[in-house]
Simulated scan of single mutants.
Amino acid sequence: MIKEERKKERMKKRRRKAAGIIFLILIIVLGGGFAIGWTCFRIKTVEVEGNALYENSVIENAVLNDKYSWNSIYVYLKYKFTSMDPIPFVDTVEIKLDSPSKLHITVYEKGVMGYFYDENEDANVYFDKDGFVAEISQRVIEGVPMIKGLQCDSIQLYEKLSIEQSLLDDLLTLTQTLKREKLVPDSIVYGRENSPILIYQNIWVPLGTVEQITQKVEHLAQILPKLKGESGMLHLENWTEDSPNIVFDRDE
């Protein structure tokens, strides 16, 4: 009886010892695998696409912004569960792993429709396709028209422009139509009765109201290339389907 109990005790000790060894081996294997994996996921290449308003380096620095950002798994998981700090004109940023060492960043920018100079801020105020202030800065972004002749009561970053709603709607309709047709002017000047005038170098194009703006812009797209090097005024303000004549007054 005593011998059997001793035998059982020795068997228990052996099992405990074997279990301890197996556990230790698992710890070593898992720890080694984790260490190797952690090292293998060191970022060597970053690919950025979709950005037109910012250099690649600006986007990279915005994404890889802490001491652990050398690791691709960490960066991937970080932005799966947290949001990035806001970047002007950027709607969302998507992070993917092309390989353990290659990070792919896709930028989805907001539509930048135009800007105007504000004397109180002594800066350029940029607005997006929804009429919200996206940036207040000194820089001038190429390909974005300057808006002149409009007054804002107040300016607040990420808030809607404080312009009469109907006028703001007309402005956004106009700028989006011009951008879609790739006819973005150097500037848009609002004169009497808030009637917009498009300026392309030395050619001025008064539009009148934004009614039938699509048709007016279609005609503009046909005529403007033929006026390259010219100087004068292309009258679209009185164009209607019933009065289709368009006059170009050359400067003398």
Rank of each mutant, 00 (worst) to 15 (best):
V210D: 06
E218C: 02
L207V: 03
P206I: 11
W204A: 14
V133Y: 02
I141Y: 14
L198N: 02
G208K: 07
R192F: 10
S231W: 02
Q156M: 07
I223M: 07
Q215F: 02
S154M: 05
D153V: 08
L227A: 07
I188N: 01
V189Y: 02
V184L: 10
Q212I: 07
E159Q: 11
L227C: 10
Q151V: 15
G149S: 09
L224V: 05
S162A: 12
E211C: 04
V210M: 06
I223H: 06
N194D: 14
S166N: 13
L220H: 03
Q212M: 11
P145Y: 12
Y190I: 03
G131V: 08
S154D: 13
V144H: 03
P185Q: 05
Q201W: 05
Q222W: 04
L168G: 01
E164P: 04
G208M: 08
L220G: 01
L183Q: 05
L227G: 10
L150D: 12
Q151M: 10
E159H: 09
L161H: 06
D170E: 15
G208H: 10
E164H: 11
L168T: 02
S166Y: 06
P225D: 06
I163E: 07
E218K: 14
L220N: 07
D153M: 08
S166V: 12
T177L: 05
Y190W: 08
I188F: 03
I223E: 05
L174E: 10
G143C: 11
N194K: 14
G149E: 09
Q156L: 09
G191R: 05
E181C: 03
G229P: 05
S195H: 02
W204R: 13
E159P: 00
K148P: 00
I223D: 04
K226C: 00
P185M: 09
V205M: 01
N202E: 14
S154V: 09
S195D: 03
T209V: 04
L198A: 03
G149C: 07
V184D: 02
S187R: 12
Y158M: 11
Q176G: 06
S231F: 00
L174T: 12
T175W: 07
Q165T: 14
K216N: 12
G143P: 12
L161G: 06
L198M: 04
Q201M: 07
D170A: 15
E159V: 00
L172P: 09
V217C: 08
I141P: 00
S195A: 07
D169W: 07
L150Q: 13
M146V: 11
G131H: 04
S187P: 00
R192N: 12
L171Q: 11
T214D: 15
L168N: 03
I155K: 05
G191C: 03
I223C: 08
G149M: 06
F132W: 00
E159W: 01
P206K: 06
Q222I: 13
Y200V: 06
L172K: 00
I188V: 14
L168H: 05
I213S: 01
I213F: 03
S137M: 02
